[in-house]
Computed example of a mutant assay.
Amino acid sequence: MESLGDLLKRTPIGGEAIRRSAQLMDELLADPLIQRFRAKHPELDEGTIRINLNRFYQFVKEYRNCEQCPGLDRCPNDFEGHYTLLQCETNGGGVQMYDRKVSCKKFIARQNEEQIRSRIRSFYIDEKALNNGGYSADEILTNDLNRIEAVGQLMEYIDRTKEHGLQTTGLYLAGRFGTGKTFLMCYLLHELAKIGHSGVIVYMPDFVEDLKAMMHEPGKLKETVDMMKETDLLIFDDIGAENLSPWVRDHVMGGILNYRMERKPTFYTSNYELDALEQHFSFTSKDGDERHKGERIMERIRSYVDVIHVTGANKRRR
């Protein structure tokens, strides 16, 4: 943004420069913004304004830019997302002017959003679904009236957590393909991250394949598992769609869920009801039917979730 100094440099020296300076002074004194500022500070005289002409020019120019804000990415002010604020103080009979840069509302909103996102880790989840968590509650409620009961239950859980703190039980969202289960969980993560909770969401089919590679990187495996144990909110997305192995089921998932029981909530989305998921966990391609092991891990899931059935149209076919 052009400063007053730059503006005056383009003005020929001599009498013309004096005339131009006087014109700028008259324009500033007539500006409603300066008039309001002077009404608030009657001790401010024209001599002080003349001495601080650059400050007042910057103040007015940036205020006008903010009135017609083109967005943060195209902010014309000297310091993106900030504007100049003037302060006037009386010291020993004289008037002293100060200016400082203040963050605008859009800059603060962006900072808050970045802080919220920094609390959320995702593995193999479409970033679009995660970032759309900023949708309003009204939009989520009216997006598909067929799932309004499920959305209401989700909202109740969010409100309960905001009011009473982290719960020990999570949610199990069951429903057909494309009904928005992942999106609803991303919304939950986003809303609870606003009040300081950390979260991890994992797309199970890809995650399980990655875990097999991590067997040869024990340090990375431990770091990943520890993060899932300790995060406030853990979401296993599309559970039941993974190609399960006994090691993943018993040692990785079993260890994570065993640690989180009675401590922190775990959430799930699935195309399976709980009984069908138990059958999935009871059979592996390596060891075949292991019903008791399926029952054991399901005890760590079934006992610590409230089931929500998500109905509605398949959004992916739109």
Rank of each mutant, 00 (worst) to 15 (best):
M204A: 04
M204Y: 00
M204F: 05
M204T: 02
P205T: 01
D206G: 07
F207T: 04
F207D: 05
F207M: 09
F207G: 01
F207L: 00
F207W: 14
F207E: 04
V208R: 09
V208G: 08
E209S: 15
E209F: 04
D210T: 10
L211F: 15
L211M: 15
L211T: 09
K212A: 10
A213I: 06
A213Y: 01
A213C: 00
A213V: 05
M214D: 07
M215N: 12
H216W: 05
H216N: 10
H216E: 13
H216R: 07
P218D: 02
P218G: 06
P218H: 02
G219M: 04
G219S: 05
G219R: 00
G219H: 01
K220Q: 11
K220T: 11
L221N: 03
K222V: 06
K222P: 02
K222I: 08
E223C: 00
T224P: 07
T224G: 04
V225Q: 01
V225W: 00
D226V: 14
M227L: 15
M227P: 03
M227T: 08
M227H: 10
M228Y: 09
M228E: 09
K229L: 08
K229I: 12
K229P: 10
E230Y: 13
E230V: 11
E230L: 09
T231R: 08
T231E: 06
T231P: 08
D232N: 15
L233T: 12
L233Q: 13
L233H: 15
L234Q: 11
L234C: 12
L234I: 13
L234P: 13
I235F: 09
F236I: 03
F236Y: 13
F236A: 00
F236T: 05
F236R: 03
D237I: 07
D237Y: 01
D237M: 02
D237K: 07
D238I: 12
D238P: 14
D238G: 10
D238H: 06
D238V: 13
I239E: 04
I239W: 00
I239D: 04
G240L: 07
G240T: 09
G240A: 09
G240I: 13
